[in-house]
Structure formats: structure tokens, C-alpha cells
Write a protein that binds this DNA or RNA. Structure first.
Lengths: 210, 210, 210, 210
DNA sequence: GATGAATGAGGATTCATTCAT
DNA sequence: AATGAATGAATCCTCATTCAT
């Protein structure tokens, strides 16, 4: 009578297991925060034994860092592509950026990573640094440049955005936070919210639906 | 069966001790987050014994809630007073609000509370609810009303802010987060940043200092 | 505006306070056992401050000992009186003893003391010793003597009870235990149970109600 | 974040470890009672780490329950076997039962379990219920039936025992208690004590050795 | 004497990490 | 490589005891 073999992930490409672990870890870290997250839960969700985690990651902190590092750059790339299309009107550019954000961040698990960075970043300086260097520090100059050109074309009333591209990003951040904190109390119509944001940035005379 | 006790603080106004504990707790919670915060540290920082914490607060969670609840309403009050001065030009109104925020939030330990809510709110629905009811839900309508009147006076190009007063708040939030995450990497000149924000909101034709 | 004065036991004869404390302590110890009993509860139930307990008793253990020591001897006295009436028939003597037990032990808080001794005695050798010397060691010889005389008068089939007066006491103990453990599951009609016990001891030919 | 571990018992049949823990726990609980028992001591005595206890038992209470549940039924079985031999004279039946009790309960650690139930049962209703259902409630009817048949055969002077089989058990209980409380002060010759008990129950005319 | 706020040792429980299999 | 049982440091919380008022 041969024993039943549970199989599970016993074989599985190592890279796939790594992905499975990172995926599970993102969920668990996002649910509970770094400290409260239990590696037992990560292992269970990933379908591996607890010890296996240590074959792929040095310790809980390393796992956390990898989770946060994963999956930011694709967005940066696509934003870069957008920025490279120089002659788009500012409003259209903003709409494109916001749609990218809504679809690829708010609509996906990537928003969890942003939350994690907000929540845990202050305790993990390396993560804040990495995130600045690889994401924030690359995106903001692109946005600044776009705003600069738009201002020069007379599409913006002043150079405020060019000087502080964070002003473009702030409502996106707020949308992520609102979703985490207040969505159940008072939902936010993100698409409309971002259209309003675009209208403010471009000083559009009448707020109109897209 | 514990032995002798050298005695130390056998007095102090109870209210003062409570404050000392809340103060210490804010520091520790802000440094480490709820889970990682150690009540030992809170007690040490407050200059009381560990057991004393439990004379004032039921448990770690209750202490945390009290920390977060403390010290939000004064700001709301003052903002309400501002909003009651109806005929201030929009730009002046924004400048006043932003100054209030810079002085009374960013410049004080209150910013730590905001960070705590951002970081831990998703795991403490009661806190998110309280914060919405007592702070966010009271401030945003005030701002909306101000924007509404300004729009009617023709000081704003559209009703975007009236519909989404969050757009006014978003950069303030970003300033708090930037301070926590990136201040050491790339400091943010908050006063200038907020002036730029005011210029965007009011569509001022030339960005000029103050 | 003079403060309300709670009064409570502020005055009260010291002896009365002592009694109040012992009374409260008996209840609490009986409910929870020595270790789990909280002196907070004792103080509250006695209507005194926690510190006051220490004015009357050295520590928790001393309080416990006093609780257990209190209120045994009256029964021993009355049993001694019974035993001194030498010519009562054995059955009548047993009925009288059992009634005394039922009324004065099972029907009162004294049964709690017995339970306490059963439960905690092994951990408090001093209490076991005291209880043997003052209660068990005085009662059993009386019972033995009674049984001896009854056997000599031919009222008992043998000298078993005279040699082991514990045999008379055992069902009384069982009644106390049953009450504590199984009363709710299967109540015991103690009066009838003790009549049956008397019938067994006296080898009465037909069991009949008193 | 705990560091290195020298490793020790990294094997051992799981069932054996479970037994070792239960064994150690019985000792510690019997020595100190539930509340005062320290799981540190249990772990040390069982030769495992503290955390290991929680791999086998949910918490202290669950461990306690398992300790008490263990090792009652074998006795009930053997008593059932005895009861199934219907035509044994009553005296012989009692002698057999008492010997079983003396050898298998008083002579073993099982007596500790009885003590534990006496001491802690009132605070653990589930345990009292379990013990009634599985032990007391099964043994007493057997004894009652035996007594009933003996009474019908004229071997007993009345139906007292048939109605209250607890009368047979009471001295056994007393023996356990005496052993715990007074053995050092005044030892009890249990074998002789139980012979005397048998003589009382059977109203034997002369108390004679065995 | 009486109070009860304050103390801090003690113990149950959790969980990141290790390592024999 | 993968497993998961075992480890024990770490931390919350309780409560007997003290002592300034």
C-alpha cells in the first residue's frame, strides 16, 4: 500500500516557488504589517513548509525587502514611455498617467506595496532608499519635465508642478490611503476624483466628464 | 510573591501621569508601530513601572487607541474658526490653512499620529472610523464649502475642489509621508511646496514667493 | 460643597472587620482555590481596601490559614457532647451525628472549608497538621469509643468501626465532594443517603425511612 | 528574533513525547494544583522546551484536561470484568474490587488524578462532567447491580448499598485523601482498612484478617 | 488605622529560526 | 532540496505586596 503523495509544490520550478512565496508574503505583510505577519501564514499560503522560506530568503526582513522591491519597475518603464511622447496635450498626458495608475496600481496588488512602504518604510530605511532611488526619484523628474514643457507651451498657468511634481502624485497617494482606511465608510469614485485632479492641475474652466 | 519596593513616584497628579504615559506611548508607537512597540519601553520612557500602565489603560490596544484619539480636535476647531471667516480670498484662506497645518501638525508630534493612522489604521477599523468621524469627515466639508464659495466668487476656475476637497488635503498628507520616508534623502521645503500647491489650486498665473 | 462620604467600614470594630475579611476570603478561596484567589476580590467583598488586609494578616498564606482554622471547633464541641451521652442506641447516635453534620456542615459555609482542606491541604502541610490535631484527631477517637461501646452492647456485628472510625466519616466526606462536583449532574439526597449509611453501619435488616 | 539553537531531542516518537509531557504534567499539577503549576517545570521535567508543549496541547487548560482524562478507563474496564462474574460471593467481590483499587489506583500515579479531580473539579465543570460520564456514572451502577444481586441472595442485610453504591466507594475516596493529607501524621493501613470496610458492608459477625 | 496607587517579579504564550530527516 | 518538529527568547499582562498620604 503506497502512501498517498500530496505532491503540492514538491517539484515546481524554483523560480515559481520563489514567486509563490513572494506572492503569499505580499498578502500576509499587507494584511498584518511586518511585525504581526506570521511566516507560518506565508508558508501555508505559498504551499511550502516553513523551513523552505529560509532556502529562498535569509530571514523575515530579507523576505520583506524582496516583496517590496518586486513589481515597481514595470510601471516606471511605462511611465517613461508616456513621457517620451512629447507633444501630447497636458490634460491628455495626465489622463493617461492617471489611467495607468488606476489600472496598474489601484486595480492590482501593487497598491498593497505602496501601503507597505507607507506603513513600514520609516522602520526600514533601506526600503525607503531603494524606493526613492528606483521609483520616486525616477518618476518625479519625468513628471517635472512634462510639466515644464507644458508650462512652456502655455498649457499650465505657472511652473508650480514643474517645481513640485509631487503635487501631481499626492492625490494618487491619497487614493491609495483612502482605499485602505475609509473605503468602507465613504467610498471614493477614483476615476472622477482623478478627473477633478486633472482639472485642477490644468485650471480647466469647467469641470466636465472626460 | 514579590518582595520589597524602593518606591519612587508615589504621587504625581494622576492626570499628569496619564499624559506622561500617552506621550511616551506616542513616541514608541510612532517609532516601532503597534506590534513592535514594547510596553516596557513605554513605561521606561514615561518613568513608571510596567504595571502602572495597566492602571490607566486596559491593554496595549486601548493605550494605542487613546494615543491616536488624543489631540486631533484642537486642529479641527481652529480650522472651523478659519472657515467661519467667509470673505477671505481663497489664496489667503489656503495660506492660512497650510500655515496652520505646517505649524500645528508638521511642526509638532501630531504628525506622528497621522503616520500612525496611515500605518495602523487598516488593522484597527475602530480607529479609522473614529478618525473619519471626528477629523476627516468634519474637515473636508468645511474645505468643500470654502471652495464652493470661492468658485461662486470666480476665484476658482472650476468646482473640482468643491467636489473633492481631498485634493486640497492630498499634498499635506504627502508632506507628512515625505518627511517620514525621504526627508533624509531629499528634503522637502514644505513652505514652498505648500505655496506651490496654493498656486496650483488657485491657478495663479505666475508662481511667486508668498 | 462637602464631598460625599462613602463611609463603608471606616469605623467598625476591628474584630468585625477581621471577621468580614475572613468571611470574604472564605468565599473567594472556596471559589477559586488558593492560587487563583485574588486579594482584590477579597478586599472588595469585605468592603475594605487592599492594603487593609495586611493590617490584619501577614500575607495571603496567613489569611488562608486563618480562614481554614476558623470555625471547626464548635462542631467538635457539639460532637463531644453527643459522645458524652453514653447510652444512646447506636442507630440514634449515628442519626444525631449525621444530622449535626448535615445541618452544621453541609448546610453552611463550613463545607467550603472542608473542600478547601481537601483541595489545598497537600500544599499546606501546616494546615493538614492543624486540621488533624484539632479536628480529625479529636473526632475519630470519639467515634471509635462510641462504636466500641455499641459493639460491646451487641449493637454492631463486629469491631470494624471501632478500629476504623473513618468508615463512619467517609460518606460524609463523599457527600461534600459530591455536592461540589456532581450535584448539578446528579443530585444526591443526602438525608436519605445518610440513613442508608446508618443502616449499613448497624446492619439493620430492612432499610426504612427514619 | 531568536538566534541559534544547539538542538537536542530532534526526534523521539511523537506519541512518546506526548506521553512524557502528560507524565510530567501529572506530577507537576498534582504537586501544585492547576493554577500554581508552572509550565516551565512541566517542560523541564518532560525534557522538552517550553514551546514544545504547545505543539501537543493548545494551552495549559487543555493539557490539564488531557492529564485528567488519561488513564481512567482501564480501571473501569477491569471493574466491568469483575462485575460480569455474577456468582462470586459479595465478600469476595468486594475484596477483589478493593484489591484492584489498592493496586491500580492507590499504588500508582492514578491516585494523583483522583486528587486533582477533587481539588480542581469544582473549577473545571467539563472535567467533572467527563469524570461523571466516563467513570463515576459507569462504576456506580455496576456496584449497585452487584449489591442488588447479593441482597437478593441474602448476602446483605438490606438494600442500602444497592440504592447508594457510593457507600462502597466512600472509604476508597477517604483512603486517597488520607494518603494525601495525613499519611505522614498517622499512616493508614489501607489493606486492613478496606477489610474492615468489607466487614461492615457484609455485616460479618467477627472481624477477621483476610 | 485605613487607603489604594504604584510596583515589578513571574508566568503563559507566540513565533522566527534551526536542523535532523 | 524540502520538510516541519523543536527550540527558547521575547513580551504582554496579572497580582501580591508596599507605603505615602
Amino acid at each position: 500500500m503506497p502512501e498517498a503523495v500530496p505532491a503540492r509544490n514538491r517539484k515546481a520550478e524554483p523560480a515559481a516557488r520563489r514567486e509563490a512565496i513572494l506572492d503569499a508574503a505580499l498578502t500576509v505583510f499587507a494584511e498584518s504589517g511586518f511585525e504581526a505577519a506570521r511566516l507560518d501564514d506565508v508558508a501555508a499560503k505559498a504551499g511550502v513548509a516553513k523551513g523552505t522560506l529560509y532556502l529562498y530568503f535569509k530571514d523575515k526582513e530579507a523576505l520583506f525587502e524582496e516583496v517590496v522591491r518586486g513589481a515597481a519597475s514595470p510601471i516606471v518603464e511605462r511611465l517613461g514611455a508616456l513621457a517620451a511622447a512629447p507633444d501630447l496635450p497636458m490634460a491628455a498626458m495626465l489622463d493617461a498617467m492617471f489611467e495607468l495608475f488606476e489600472k496598474e496600481v489601484l486595480g492590482t496588488r501593487r497598491k498593497l506595496i505602496i501601503r507597505l512602504i507607507l506603513a513600514e518604510g520609516p522602520r526600514f530605511p533601506r526600503i525607503a532608499e531603494f524606493y526613492y532611488r528606483d521609483v520616486v526619484g525616477r518618476i518625479l523628474p519625468m513628471v517635472a519635465k512634462i510639466a515644464q514643457r507644458a508650462a512652456e507651451r502655455g498649457e499650465l498657468p505657472n511652473d508650480a508642478i514643474a517645481r513640485y511634481p509631487q503635487l501631481v502624485a499626492a492625490p494618487l497617494l491619497l487614493a491609495v490611503i483612502w482605499d485602505a482606511l475609509f473605503a468602507r465608510i465613504k467610498p471614493l469614485d477614483v476615476a472622477d476624483f482623478l478627473r477633478a485632479h486633472r482639472d485642477v492641475l490644468t485650471a480647466r474652466a469647467r469641470s466636465t466628464p472626460q
